[in-house]
Design a protein around this nucleic acid. Sequence first.
RNA 1: CGGAGUGUAGCUCAGUCCGGUAGAGCACCGCCUUCGGGAGGCGGGGGUCGGAGGUUCGAAUCCUCUCACUCCGACCA
Length: 598
Amino acid sequence: MPVGPAEISTIHLNLRNTGFRMRTSQYLIATLRETPADAEVISHQLMLRAGLIRKLASGMYTWLPAGLRVLHKVTAIVREEMNRSGALEVSMPVVQSAELWQESGRWDKMGPELLRFVDRHERPFCLGPTHEEVITDLIRNEFNSYKQLPANFYQIQMKFRDERRPRFGIMRAREFLMKDAYSFHINQTSLEQTYQLMYQTYSNIFSRLGLDFRAVLADTGNIGGSTSHEFHVLADSGEDDIVFNSTGSYSANIELADGFIRDLDDGSADMLQSREIDTAQAHTIEALTSLLELPATRLIKTLIVKAVQSDTNPHGLMALVLRGDQELNDIKAEKLSGIVSPLTFASDDEIENVIGCKPGCLGPNNLDFPVVVDRSAEKMRNFICGANKSSTHLADANWGKDCRFDMVADIRKVKEGDLSPDGQGDLLIKRGIEVGHIFQLGTKYSQAMNASVLDENGRSVLMTMGCYGIGVSRIVAAAIEQNNDANGIIWPDAIAPFQVAIIPLNAHKSPRVTEISEQLMTDLEKAGFEVLLDDRDKKTSPGVKFADMELMGIPHRIVVSDRGLENNELEYKSRRAENAETVPLASVLEFLRARIAT
RNA sequence: CGGAGUGUAGCUCAGUCCGGUAGAGCACCGCCUUCGGGAGGCGGGGGUCGGAGGUUCGAAUCCUCUCACUCCGACCA
């Protein structure tokens, strides 16, 4: 249908009036029928297929119009809630000079993840992967008095991290949109108050986004500090294991999750006399359990890892001992003093040189380096362990008699079904996608960069800091991971690129269908809904329109057809519903108002 | 950074082993028909086969080098 000058000016007027007025014929519907070969996870596949993003290079993506609308919606919710919490928005440079990073010490500490380059004067710069240095520099210059505290500053901005391995599309991109906030305090108590406020703000944000999420206790990692929580969107494709109990009173990242084993040996049995047994080729726990016809809970697993070399530990090794059915948590193990970080297993050759046998028959007996035993094995009696001799194990071995340890620690990965550490119910484990992380930083950066204010006694005090991040672009991918079906994306109302799709059928034949569709779009937009009218010409069959709108995940669909209009009816279908329903033309507005959260 | 793999049309792929001068489906353009679930017919446009070098009368195909991308491991929003 040719568009004359009069119609064009009408369209422009409407654009100005409503701000929306989107028609597929004038929009970029960049849907793909087939899945691009280089996308592996569902969110990446669907973002490409639905025409939300296109790849420029590894880990770098262009956001197409529909995708950008989603990203903006997420951004708007994050911004509103941050503002509501009293945080102040700023915008810091993406390009940062090396000096600040040298001052904090991170110029040398950060690996190639920090993308460095020089300007035309050969002065070193980097692309900001995070902004602790810049904000701390700003605040040490602007703040002089405790009266200015506490304060919380945030920005929503592209970050760049030259990831070792970008993957999963937007989920782990090198360039990504992040909300980062930094708070400044006169003392720990004040920090804890703001930390609580951010915890609540994050909960509000993820609730408003319409996502199923959990806040979990987290490892503070290299950033240090005392307390940290991660916010995870639950999805089977998540990269993290998160642990929580049935009552909701405990939740933690598996990296530091605690739990009690129910069938723990209480150490009350009488000690038997140990004896050597021939275990031939059985070198694994699994092989031993079937050979000896004993459960793995009767065995002990001994792992040899690298430790710091010293006079008292000339081999530079350490033994980590767990009950046979348990697995090592390497994050916990790395925190043991004297251990080499990152955790490194000793090679077969090293083990043979020092102990005299290959892995498979190792045990905590006669070892001349430190032995750390997990609580799961601490009280075991009459257990099976390696004899440090080829093809030989010790049966009915006991601590104190046959074996020794230097220290008891929690180095085990909790398992589903363990008793919650607070005693409330069983532990469950689910996969999560980390979309937010809050930290109590303490004075790490204020100390390195000498950021202080005067307290009420006129004494100079280092500011205590907190930092709070949200992966804004990652949320888009995470939302898809959590909400999709065979036909494509299913957006929560709050972040859908459009809330309502109007599909006119046979519009080219029916002036009435065209007229009602146009009128409906106008009315819905006046009512505050965001509408996409699929007015593509007759060469685009209804099936294509249905498929595209579903792929793009538009949560509410109205079909306008002659058949329905005979009875003054429209057809409505929720993206989540199995079947469509009819709605009287006259009441469609109330109908949608009742179903769409705005 | 180690390990594995893939680069041929906008997308999905065949052709490569065995050298003979580039294909299919979808998408796109035109005309006709069709019109409530990715329509049909006829006609058409589009690729220096990732790049460079080599072998050969002749290279998408064989050899060497290179670049890019994806996946698996340790980090992070």
